[in-house]
């Protein structure tokens, strides 16, 4: 276990370093943020001064070195736009994103597991085929389209749920969150549904495919021979054996969802890190983009680690090493 942690830590450092190089290269060769900072009628002198303040007048190597050593000290610089530390900006917006992502994941799991287990245990039943057909639609629906349809139908026509913004937030574990109040929770629902549909469909298909295989195994028949009821057979003996691929994909999708909730946040004007990223790209707000990318990379490493731990928890034959 100790060796494993060390290995993971080293891996994390390497990943983060690689990302820092990529990010720096990308940043340096795409666009110049100076012109976003100075007035349109700025003189050459003013522009040169701005470049000096931003540190853009030095060689790339020096710039990179400064960039890297700042990062190593936890200093990601200040947002050009907000004049605040970029890290603070991200951390402020993070709870909003985590909130819709986790709600979306919980919804996806709550629907995908029972449906996938049912469809996998009874692959020939018409209801299972219907579920499978439905999942194909779910996978092929573009998220932005679904979001707009939901806004149009549920928010505008039926006026059941709000269509944009975060609603009231309250302080919870030092973060500002919406789900603690009813009104805030109502704001969460539509974005979360939009975000969950594709994931739900994919998870369900994975569970189904895995369950079809698991149900053919001898130990399932042996459990039936013991007189175990369907519930025990499906969920104790069946589902647990189908979990490894589910956890793998779940991990990948969780990272994906946090990282790329961008579209959904934009559609619903949800003030999360995805929306912050889009805004920062428009404004060429480099430090924010850098923090965002580093953060996403870090998150993938952490999720990977959690996935590994889950493997070991599920299957006694898998040892963490």
């Amino acid at each position: 276990m100790f060796g494993y942690m060390i290995k993971r830590l080293i891996q994390m450092v390497i990943v983060l370093w690689a990302v820092s190089v990529l990010v720096f290269v990308m940043m340096s060769f795409t666009g110049d943020p100076t012109f976003m900072m100075v007035p349109l009628d700025a003189t050459d002198e003013q522009i040169a001064q701005a470049r000096r303040i931003l540190g853009l007048d030095e060689s790339h190597l020096v710039q990179y070195w400064r960039f890297l050593s700042n990062i190593a000290q936890g200093d990601f610089g200040r947002s050009f736009v907000f004049r605040q530390p970029a890290m603070t900006l991200i951390l402020e917006r993070l709870p909003a994103t985590l909130e819709i992502v986790f709600l979306a994941m919980v919804m996806a799991l709550l629907v995908a597991i029972p449906l996938g287990v049912y469809a996998g245990a009874n692959p020939k039943k018409p209801a299972s085929r219907a579920v499978m057909a439905g999942s194909l639609i779910g996978i092929s629906l573009p998220g932005f389209w679904l979001g707009m349809v939901l806004i149009f139908v549920v928010a505008v026509k039926l006026q059941w749920l709000p269509s944009s913004g975060r609603g009231p937030t309250t302080e919870w574990l030092g973060m500002r969150v919406s789900f603690t109040s009813w009104e805030g929770f109502r704001h969460l629902i539509l974005p979360a549904i939009t975000l969950s549909v594709g994931t739900l469909a994919i998870l369900m298909r994975i569970i189904r495919a895995e369950m079809v295989e698991v149900m053919k195994q001898d130990y399932i028949k042996f459990a039936r021979a013991k007189g175990a009821p369907a519930k025990v057979i499906l969920f104790k003996h069946g589902l647990k054996n189908a979990l490894i691929p589910l956890v793998t994909v779940f991990g990948l999708m969780l990272g994906d969802l946090i990282a790329f909730a961008t579209l959904t946040e934009t559609i619903f004007a949800w003030p999360g890190i995805g929306k912050l990223l889009v805004d920062s790209i428009y404004r060429g707000d480099r430090p924010v983009i850098v923090v965002y990318l580093m953060f996403v990379a870090l998150m993938f490493v952490v999720v990977n680690f959690i996935v590994d731990v889950c493997y070991a928890l599920i299957d006694p034959r898998i040892k963490i090493k």
Partner: peptide, 14 residues
């Protein structure tokens, strides 16, 4: 009750 033919596969590995 039934004793299954193949002991390697009759028990749930988890």
């Amino acid at each position: 009750a039934m004793i299954f033919q193949d002991p390697m596969t009759a028990l749930n590995p988890l």
